[in-house]
Nucleic acid binder design. Structure first.
Length: 645
RNA sequence: GCCGGCGUAGCUCAGGGGUAGAGCAGCUGAUUCGUAAUCAGCAGGCCGCGGGUUCAAAUCCCAUCGCCGGCUCCA
């Protein structure tokens, strides 16, 4: 006669009796009425449906609509893929295969890289496995036994992982003839996987270390139903349409040239104009907040880079040249001249904080493989500032930078994630300084009530930092704003100020950018707006389209009037039909099209048509200029009207 | 930098050892038209750059530059 246990069902709180040794699915089966169960939470821990219960516990069903379910499905899909790969490539060694943000991957050590045809075959193999409805079964075993098991299979990567595990017991999962080291849980059987697609293959270093062997990684995604998969694939297509590299070409904003070199942006008139607007906007915002605009040189003697520590810690990313037998370094950061400005005279505590702002163009030798449109380039301009303050002022300074970032991002409508990065291996300064700087950053964020992630060991070589990440159209995150504490440069340059006590003190330094790099920000901005810039940023705010050539003279006069008001307007003078010219303006995402036919000439006005197709009816050009100005101010939250350029 | 893929007209792409192709854009002409593509004609190319194999290379091989997807690294 078996004992009874009491199970509390969550979230209802209902208590039911069950036989000791009953499985999760047996217990939940009755309560789950028709829902597709994926797994369960046993006292808060995710477990498989066939897990047996031997004590009183709380149990919560995980059906396919729970947020955890999709991760479990994708993780199981990775196992199924690995099984298919092993069937096709018996010599393949398996590494790791987790669920990731939009899917899953699995890394394999294989003789030759996978091809597109291989992927199709693997998909076919997966479909076969799915149709067999193989159960995922879990087995716990002592770590030593697992090492023996995987050694006998030749799975050296699994053995390497196991050898570093501390737990005496590990779990393995098996479906069909495929065995994998895994914490689980998994879907009950392979047939649960209904919709999946292998999306790509790429090289990836074992354990993410470039000194290790490069494995072959297959990416895929999976969903509970085919419609969701289709929706996701459509999303990817849509995202590709707003890729800034594509829009940059279509909207004639910028280009790259292999004759010029990789990672060097060539701004075309419209792209340059947007950047110009952004930069003017930035200068005003900085002056408003007590920053002083400064300008430093591009080439600085290598000796100075040695003094700052850049030569020892950042040389790999720098370009050097020689002038009159003197070695110079092209600046990868703007801080040095700002330090020299500070040092140019005696400073009092009454002068602090000093905030030096520079739209500084820097060059960094990024590895060729990381270059990516505007988002990762070798020459870029930062909206950079260095704040020198007393240690007491540090917290307030950081808080006001965070406010600055949040106000600016609000204007563009960006949401962001915040990360704090702590001391890396290759770094300078004392532990005590790092500790002080790191806690200054965390305190400021906590006082402002922001959530943040901590990235251990990801800081700059000279100090810890707060990074603000924006997402691109393809869901990749890009660092834009960053706030970096630096206790070491003031030391190396022997910066000081005279305190109220008459003695010399060391100021604290903060490096910070708001938009980050103008290039990257513009790239993310293009994708954010899908190329349809708000009027205050649009390089062409209105385009005049005439019904026939007969109205061209009047169109020219209107254009001149609007330009004198600061409206960025052009005339399409081609002898094309109205519809043709409208279509073109539409595809160029111009905010306003000003239609001029005989009626408008008669009425001495224009008929604006908005980008979304709405027509505003006849108005004078002056009324239209007022309208554009009002919209600029509204969309820029009062910052920018018509007179930005 | 590493693994894989790819460079053909301004753009998007076809052609895969035997005379270089299409659509769009451009130019010229006709059309003068009311809110997302008027018609016709013309022009446009060291097939990324450099080597090699071959009677013959856009096509095959090597090297190089650049681009794309990842990895590593970063604003």
């Amino acid at each position: 006669m078996s004992k009874e246990i009491e199970v509390t069902l969550l979230p209802s709180g209902q208590k039911i009796k069950a036989a000791e040794g009953a499985s999760v699915s047996e217990i939940l089966g009755k309560a789950a009425a028709g829902k597709l169960l994926i797994a369960a939470k046993l006292d808060g821990q995710l477990v498989d449906l066939n897990q047996k219960l031997d004590r009183d516990a709380c149990l919560e069903a995980i059906d396919k609509d729970c947020p955890e379910a999709i991760k479990i499905l994708r993780h199981s899909a990775a196992h199924i893929m690995a099984q298919a790969v092993r069937a096709l490539f018996p010599e393949a060694r398996i590494a790791i295969g987790p669920a990731i943000e939009n899917g899953f991957y699995y890394d394999f050590d294989v003789e030759r890289p996978f091809t597109q045809q291989d992927l199709e075959q693997i998909e076919e193999g997966m479909r076969k496995i799915i149709s067999q409805k193989l159960a995922f079964s879990r087995k716990d075993m002592p770590r030593e036994e697992a090492i023996g098991l995987f050694s006998s299979m030749g799975e050296k990567y699994k053995v390497e992982l196991l050898e570093e595990f501390r737990d005496p017991t590990v779990s393995i999962y098996q479906q069909g003839d495929f065995i994998d080291l895994c914490r689980g849980p998994h879907i009950p059987q392979t047939g649960v996987l209904r919709a999946f697609k292998l999306t790509g293959v790429a090289g990836a270093y074992w354990r993410g270390d470039e000194h290790n062997r490069m494995l072959q990684r297959i990416y895929g995604t999976a969903f509970f139903d085919v419609e969701s998969l289709k929706k996701y694939l459509t999303f990817l297509e849509e995202a590709q349409k707003r890729d800034h590299r594509r829009l940059g070409k279509e909207l004639d904003l910028f280009s790259f040239s292999d004759e010029v070199g990789a990672g060097m942006v060539i701004y075309h008139p419209k792209g340059a104009l947007i950047r110009h607007i952004l930069e003017n906007f930035e200068k005003r915002e900085h002056l408003l907040r007590g920053y002083q605009i400064v300008i430093g040189p591009t080439l600085l003697k290598t000796d100075l880079w040695k003094k700052s520590g850049h030569f020892d810690h950042y040389r790999e990313n720098m370009y050097f040249t020689e002038i009159d037998e003197q070695s110079y370094g092209v600046k990868p950061m703007n801080c040095l001249s700002h330090m020299l400005i500070y040092k140019s005279k005696m400073r009092s505590y009454r002068d602090l904080p000093l905030r030096y702002f520079e739209l500084g163009t820097v060059h960094r030798h990024e590895k060729s493989g990381v270059l990516h449109g505007l988002l990762r380039v070798r020459q870029f301009t930062q909206d950079d500032a260095h704040i020198l303050c007393t240690p007491d002022q540090l917290n307030d300074e950081i808080k006001s930078i965070i406010d600055f970032v949040s106000e600016v991002m609000g204007i563009f409508g960006f949401e962001f994630e915040i990360e704090i990065s702590t001391r890396p291996q290759d770094s300078i300064g004392s532990d005590e300084d790092w500790q002080r700087a790191t806690s200054a950053l965390t305190h400021a964020l906590e006082e402002k009530g922001y959530d943040y992630f901590v990235c251990e060991g990801e800081g700059a070589f000279y100090g810890p930092k707060i990074d603000i990440k924006l997402k691109d159209a393809l869901d990749r995150r890009w660092q834009c704003a960053t706030i970096q504490c630096d206790f070491t440069l003031p030391e190396r340059f022997d910066l000081n100020y005279i305190g109220a006590d008459g003695a010399r003190h060391r100021p604290v330094m903060v490096h910070r950018v708001i938009l980050g790099a103008m290039e990257r920000f513009l790239g993310v901005l293009i994708e954010h707006y899908a190329g349809a810039f708000p009027v205050w940023l649009a390089p062409v705010q209105a385009i005049i389209v005439t019904v026939t050539d007969a109205q061209l003279d009047f169109a020219g006069a209107v254009c001149a009037q609007l330009r004198s008001r600061g409206v960025r307007v052009e005339v399409d003078t081609r002898s094309e039909k109205l519809g043709y010219k409208i279509r073109e303006a539409q595809m160029q995402k111009v905010p306003y099209m000003l239609v001029i036919g005989d009626k408008e000439v008669q009425g001495a006005g224009v008929a604006p048509r908005k980008r979304d197709g709405t027509q505003l009816g006849l108005m004078t050009s002056s009324e239209f200029a007022d309208l554009v100005e009002k919209e600029c101010l509204e969309s820029s939250k009062g910052r920018v009207g018509l007179n930005i350029v």
